[in-house]
Structure formats: C-alpha cells, structure tokens
C-alpha cells in the first residue's frame, strides 16, 4: 500500500519534471533546427552550442517586470495563463511512455485527453478578453474559433483508429496494434496531422499569432512569467498531440530490439521534427481559406472515412 503510493508519487514527479525540461528544451531544438534549415547556426553563445539557452531564457522571463494594462480585468488576466499551463501539463497523466510507465491508466484515456484539451481553449479566450486591448481580443477570438473547429476534425479523425483498436484505453490501443493503425488509416493520419497543426496553432495555421495582422495575438499584453506560461503550454501541447499520434497511429512503444520507451521517444521526436520542418517550409494560410478547408473539405473526408472503415471492417469480419 505505502509502496504503491510511493511509486505513484515518484512517477508523477519524474514525468512532471521531465515534461517541463523537455518543453524548455523543445524551444532550443526548434530554434536550432530552423537555424540549420536556414543555413544559420541558431543559438550558440550560452554554453557549448547554446545548450544553456533555455535556462537563460527562463531566468530572464522570471526576472522580468510584470505589466498589467489598466484596462485589463486583473484576476482573469492572471488566471488565464495558469489555466492554459495547468491544462497542458495534466494531459501528461495518461500518456503511456512504455507498457508499464504511465502516471495512471484510465479506461477513457482518449476522452480524457480531448476533454481536458478543450478546456485549454478557454484559457486562450479568457487571455484575449481579459487584456482589454483590441489585438489580444481579436487574436483570442480567432484562436478559439480555430481551435474549436479543428478539435472536431481531430476528434473525428481518430475514430477510425478507435474502431480498429476497439478501446478508449491508450494502453490497450497500443497493444492491439500488431500492424500499426497508420496502415489501415492513412487518410485519418494525414487529417489528424493537419488538424493537430491547427489545434495547437502552429505554422502554417498560426493565425491567432499572425504578427503582420495582430501583433502577437492573444498574448500581446503579456510579459514575464505569464508570457512564459503560454509558451510552455504551447510546446507541451505539441508534445501531447505528437504523443497521441504515436499512440493511435504509429504503434506507441512497439518496436523490435530496443526497449519500449526508446521507440516511443524516437517516434515522438520524429513527429516533432516534422512539425518544426513544416514551420520552416510553409507560409501562413489566410483565415477564411483556413476555415473553409476545415469545414468544407476535411469534415466530409473524415465522415466518409468513418463510414468506409465501418463497411470494410464488417466485410473483413464477415459480420
């Protein structure tokens, strides 16, 4: 009993610390990768090859003055970044990094991820509204509309994989994949990746933060540590959507020879690298085009995908 609780606590602390560290270093990885893609060096000054850069950035943001504009709603202004960060961090609770290494195992793991992730939208909407300034409120509204829309496509695209795996438990989903789900669900995987880019506001869909139109979007008025929270949450969400793609479509920790968590991390970081690569390659979409693609093209495709998957599965089973 006591041992069990001790192990559970240890797991939580390890995952929490590693998540924060990975998120911090993801900013470094992103700058470095994009730097090299553009034939630059990226950060080089702080530590060997700039390895201490994220720590320097963190300390700097920590020491920065905290500005609350006079038109802002004070409580909500502080509440929004904390809400965004907390929702991003508690998503790590159900991610199985290995067969026996997850903070907890819920039989509704997929539902947990999607429901908590939609609370994150609220943080961004509140941040835009509470700033009492026009660019943040426009950015917040855009962001909310975009994230809500793309969450639907994200949700529908994984249904195909759930039908094949026959469970909402993330561990069981991985165990059911003797052949990776991506083989049966290539369309769903592509839609998932596009929807994920929209959901976490990454290039080419970083419209809430379109610098040329909206300054910095919903976090225009934020400074210091509160700004850092939004930044951390954004990268934590990136890890989460890539982990979900790994679990649902790429067979999670399954793989030969190497231990499970190594395979999980290889797949995870390959996807993250792909997301950064996309950022270095594509220009930004226009907002109306972006919503049109979502509602008029992606939604019919995912619905058709579910129906086709259903028919083919029944044919194969000989139901």
């Amino acid at each position: 009993m006591l041992l069990e609780i001790g192990i559970a606590l240890l797991k939580i602390i390890v995952v929490f610390a590693l998540a924060l560290l990975t998120v911090a270093y993801l900013t470094y990885i992103e700058r470095k990768v994009i730097g090299h893609m553009q034939v630059r060096m990226g950060p080089m000054r702080v530590g060997p090859h700039g390895l201490l850069q994220p720590i320097a950035d963190g300390l700097k943001l920590f020491m920065k003055e905290d500005i609350v504009p006079y038109e802002a709603y004070r409580f909500t202004f502080y509440f929004a970044p904390i809400l965004t960060l907390v929702t991003a961090l508690i998503l790590f609770a159900v991610i199985p990094f290995d067969k026996h290494f997850a903070i907890t195992r819920l039989n509704i793991g997929v539902m947990y991820i999607l429901s908590i992730a939609s609370v994150g939208v609220l943080g961004i909407l509140l941040a835009g509204w509470a700033s009492g300034s026009k660019y943040p409120i426009l950015g917040g509204l855009r962001s909310a509309a975009q994230m809500l829309s793309y969450e639907i496509f994200l949700g529908f695209s994984i249904i195909g994989a759930l039908m094949i795996s026959g469970s909402l438990d993330l561990v069981k989903i991985v165990e059911s994949q003797h052949v990776w789900n991506i083989v049966y669900q290539p369309v769903a995987f592509v839609i998932y990746i596009i929807a994920a880019l929209g959901e976490i506001n990454r290039v080419p869909f970083d419209l809430p933060e379109a610098e040329t139109e909206l300054v910095a979007g919903f976090h225009t008025e934020y400074s210091g540590m509160k700004f850092a929270y939004f930044f951390l949450a954004e990268y934590a969400n990136m890890i989460i959507v890539c982990s979900m793609a790994t679990i649902l479509f790429l067979g999670g920790w399954r793989g030969p020879v190497l231990p499970g968590f190594v395979w999980f991390l290889i797949k995870l970081f390959a996807l993250i690298y792909f997301f950064i690569w996309v950022r270095a390659t594509f220009p930004r979409y226009r907002y109306d085009q972006f919503m049109k693609i979502g509602w008029k093209i992606m939604l019919p495709i995912v619905l058709a995908n579910i129906v086709v998957t259903g028919v083919v599965m029944m044919m194969v089973q000989g139901g």
């Binding site: 609780i5 559970a8 602390i13 904390i82 960060l85 907390v86 159900v94 929270y229």
Partner: peptide, 24 residues
C-alpha cells in the same frame, strides 16, 4: 488496487497548479 486511478490525476493537477502559482 489500493487507490482509484483518478487520484494520480488529482495529484498531478495539484502539482501543476502549485507550480503555476508559486512560480508567479
């Protein structure tokens, strides 16, 4: 078996809120 599977989620939630508030 001894504790519900949702207890670790609550602990993580407390940890995350604590991190957010204390750092600020």
């Amino acid at each position: 078996h001894a504790i519900s599977e949702y207890v670790p989620v609550l602990i993580l939630l407390a940890l995350a809120v604590g991190f957010g508030v204390v750092t600020l």
